[in-house]
Simulated scan of single mutants.
Amino acid sequence: MSTPQAAGQVWAHVGQAFTDPGYDVVVVGAGRMGSACAHFLRQLAPQQKLLLLDEGGLPSEDGATILAPGLWSALDPAPEDLAEANWVRQQLATAFGDVSLESRPLVALQARKTADAQPTAAVLHRFPSLAEVIDPQALPWATLDERAVTYRPGAVALSCGQQAVRRGADLMLNARATLVPGGVKIERLTVTNTHEVVTHETHHLRAARVVVALGAAGPHAAEHDLGVHTAHARAYRQAPRLNVPSTRDTPVVRAGGLTLRAQHGGFTLVPPIHHRDPYGYVPQGGHLTGVPTGLRRETLEDLVALMDAVPVLATEALELGRSLSDVPGAWLALPGGLARGRPLHQPLTEGAWLLLGGPQADVLGLSTAYDLAAALTGVAGRPWH
């Protein structure tokens, strides 16, 4: 009879004493990708000592995990990746508890007819609530994905991190990591009563394997800390609000690359990504009829271009904000520098690997995290094959 696995140690603040027990693997970043990798590492190699750490909390409050659209659709992955995406969908439905998984048909609107398209007018007859949102004359054809689902990526990250700790992984929060050859330097952080972040402890940890799962900051960390150049990029994506009534039966709509996800009685808008933002670029708000807005200029231009097809974008239902901080946004990794690049992992130096999510993390992020965990533990085969 096997002995139950003891739970791991959790360090949440610098008042808890820390002594390095010697780790086999350190995962830097407790967003969706890092937490999922830690979860699968504990499944595949429970004998290895594992530390998951983040500069904030679990799930990470920085980056795209909290603001990710949480939309799985068979229309998003390439045909050769569909079996892998289906495995991710099954995991979302069975492996992580309540992640607010809901069936939501996806209506992809288009100007030209394709083999699997149907008239937009017929779709509006089935989903009458969309009649106030879109103009069927501007985008007369629609493709339906009946299997699409929405979920909360932050809940997936939280569940993965908690399961990893229950299986024996250690977790350290409020800790900043710097990559060094053969391990990481950890600065344990605290906040003063004037809200100043300060370093109270510094530790140098040696680890045979380090997984860099810092999202959009990962490629910069690889270059700045390890001197390794990568081809990956990042972009700042906002998620403005559209205050048009929606219900649990309202489908997800995609028009011109813009995704309208029915959420909280209205819609969350997920704009398309056309290009990368250079490192050091600070997103700037745009102007609409001469008035400053909180939507960055590139996003505002996209929405203006869609106002004929989605007329409600030209009304006061769209929350523009007055400054960039008024509209939720986060940096998003672009694997390979491409807007539609699939998630990936790659070796950086001896013992260090980069793990990136990106625009297709909703449909392929979990499988990519599993793939890296399997590679690091020598497990052959993948469950989706």
Rank of each mutant, 00 (worst) to 15 (best):
53 L>Q: 08
58 L>T: 07
283 P>M: 02
88 V>D: 07
274 H>L: 05
239 A>K: 04
183 G>F: 11
42 R>S: 14
229 H>R: 15
112 R>G: 01
184 V>T: 10
193 N>G: 14
16 Q>A: 15
280 G>M: 09
257 G>D: 00
316 E>P: 01
33 M>Q: 12
150 T>K: 10
212 V>I: 10
89 R>Y: 03
342 R>S: 05
190 T>N: 08
194 T>N: 09
218 G>S: 14
21 P>Y: 07
24 D>N: 05
12 A>H: 12
286 G>C: 08
323 S>L: 03
256 G>R: 00
344 L>Y: 13
175 A>D: 05
24 D>A: 12
86 N>K: 13
24 D>H: 06
267 F>D: 00
244 V>D: 02
145 D>R: 06
338 L>N: 01
138 A>W: 00
258 L>H: 00
300 L>H: 03
290 G>L: 07
295 L>W: 02
5 Q>M: 13
93 A>H: 11
368 T>S: 10
365 G>T: 04
74 A>D: 03
122 A>D: 15
130 L>R: 01
57 G>L: 08
27 V>H: 10
53 L>A: 11
150 T>Y: 09
193 N>F: 06
331 W>F: 13
212 V>N: 13
112 R>C: 04
383 P>Y: 08
350 E>P: 15
285 G>V: 03
342 R>K: 09
11 W>Q: 14
302 D>S: 04
52 L>C: 12
238 Q>I: 00
127 F>M: 06
199 T>F: 07
106 L>Y: 01
17 A>M: 14
74 A>G: 10
275 H>M: 04
173 L>T: 13
2 S>I: 09
117 A>L: 02
130 L>H: 02
236 Y>V: 09
64 A>W: 04
4 P>S: 06
272 P>V: 00
145 D>Y: 04
179 L>H: 09
275 H>N: 07
351 G>K: 05
18 F>R: 11
341 G>R: 02
17 A>S: 14
12 A>M: 07
358 G>T: 01
333 A>C: 12
114 T>D: 06
56 G>C: 09
261 R>C: 00
233 A>H: 15
155 A>F: 10
314 A>H: 05
337 G>E: 10
114 T>N: 05
329 G>M: 03
323 S>I: 08
46 P>M: 14
352 A>R: 13
103 S>Y: 10
24 D>W: 01
119 P>Q: 07
130 L>Q: 03
80 E>M: 02
217 A>F: 07
104 R>S: 05
316 E>F: 11
254 R>M: 01
306 L>W: 00
196 E>A: 11
184 V>G: 04
